[in-house]
Nucleic acid binder design. Structure first.
Lengths: 219, 219
DNA sequence: TGGTCAATGTCGGGT
DNA sequence: ACCCGACGTTGACCA
């Protein structure tokens, strides 16, 4: 990893055109060849960047980065104030807990959370337009499609609606009802869902984890 | 801006929980108080970060970053290999060209691109569920809602469908037809749109710019 | 490779 | 502060 503080201007010509006027910035060159240009604010986002795979051609006062798609970053260097390189090695990577996949896992292990007598048919039930998070049967044996979100918003309701429309045409499954399950459901999403006859269920991650733990202690 | 290369492990407790095992990484501390932790790959995304506003408390071998929402980043420092600070000043900021706003601007100036006799009623026509990109009238005087995208995908069709449903209930506007206009329209989005009676129009950014330029030269 | 979806999405604008 | 939509979204996963 190479860290360069430089007075520079930048032009990007690719999916759009963008220009950065002359100023002092951080140029962050990584071992995979990627480069990002940071100002002294916004933790997350560089002002400009080029993702790998790409190639950096370093000329006098003019750096040029190009990728396969023909996108180009042109960095005009006025002055270099700092230039150091550091050996970092391969990172062991990030371990996450609490994302949607875990909610799905926990709910698949405890479908009765959604209603009495609920049983799981399949997780990630494939359809032509994408996978349904959970396919269940309710206490009466009717098919229920479940869309799981961390935060339930309108997009999620639309997604579930598309699945319901498709699944409802399958005579082996019809009639199919829907459940929109999330840790938090935005009011507008709830209105839209209920207007379409989709039941909303608010999930408690810790409680679900507790349920699973209790079940584990049975063995 | 402060650049630290350190052997560290990191824990994030917030919207989710995440852990980074011990390794050498870049800690990027910006003037606005934000911090991001980078490995030697992936141009764009840090492994971990905290967005401003947040506060960094620096103890012996243990950094702690917290924000208003109670999210926390705990950085355990094993060894510091590099530590420099640099004055960057305020960045003049990025100038973009070719984003959706420009497409909308150009199309608003040349509504006849969408069909003979088309006229503009309003850009960003407000509704209860959000702004319609363009509201037009066709050659026969009927209302047309136009959704503009750089890349037309299913989400955009859903969005336009919601607007059409709402606008169609307004007796002053009804009946309302829809146009899905984009520089590129994905096949699945086209199928969905046309299935719902929405016309698809592929836009040529350069041609549109040409039209506008021609009009400008008339004056 | 292309399609679909999640994300600690981030960011900006309007109400 | 909430809501909504764009983003060079990025990134992962699966057919």
């Amino acid at each position: 990893m190479r860290l360069v503080i430089a007075k520079c201007s930048v032009d990007y010509i690719g999916r759009l055109t963008a220009h950065l006027p002359l100023a002092t910035r951080l140029l962050l060159i990584k071992a995979d060849g990627s480069i990002s240009i940071h100002a002294d604010d916004r933790a997350y986002k560089p002002l400009n960047w080029m993702s790998p795979p790409c190639r950096l051609e370093e000329l006098e006062g003019q750096w040029r980065v190009v990728n396969k798609a023909g996108e180009e970053l042109r960095i005009t260097i006025e002055d270099i104030l700092h230039d150091t390189s550091h050996e970092l090695g391969i990172d062991p990577g990030l371990v996450k807990d609490g994302v949607e996949a875990h909610l799905q896992e926990l709910l698949a292990a405890a479908p009765e959370t959604l209603g009495p007598g609920f049983t799981l048919v399949r997780r990630e039930y494939m359809t032509a337009i994408g996978p349904v998070d959970l396919l269940c049967r309710d206490g009466a044996g009717a098919t229920v499609a479940v869309e799981i979100k961390r935060r339930g918003e309108i997009d999620g309701v639309e997604q579930l609606t598309r699945y319901l429309e498709l699944l409802g045409r399958d005579p082996l499954l019809a009639p199919v009802t829907g459940i929109f399950a999330a840790q938090e459901i935005k009011p507008q999403a709830r209105v839209l869902a209920e207007d379409r006859g989709i039941r909303c269920v608010v999930l408690d991650y810790n409680a679900l984890r507790g349920v699973q733990k209790d079940e584990l202690t049975l063995f």
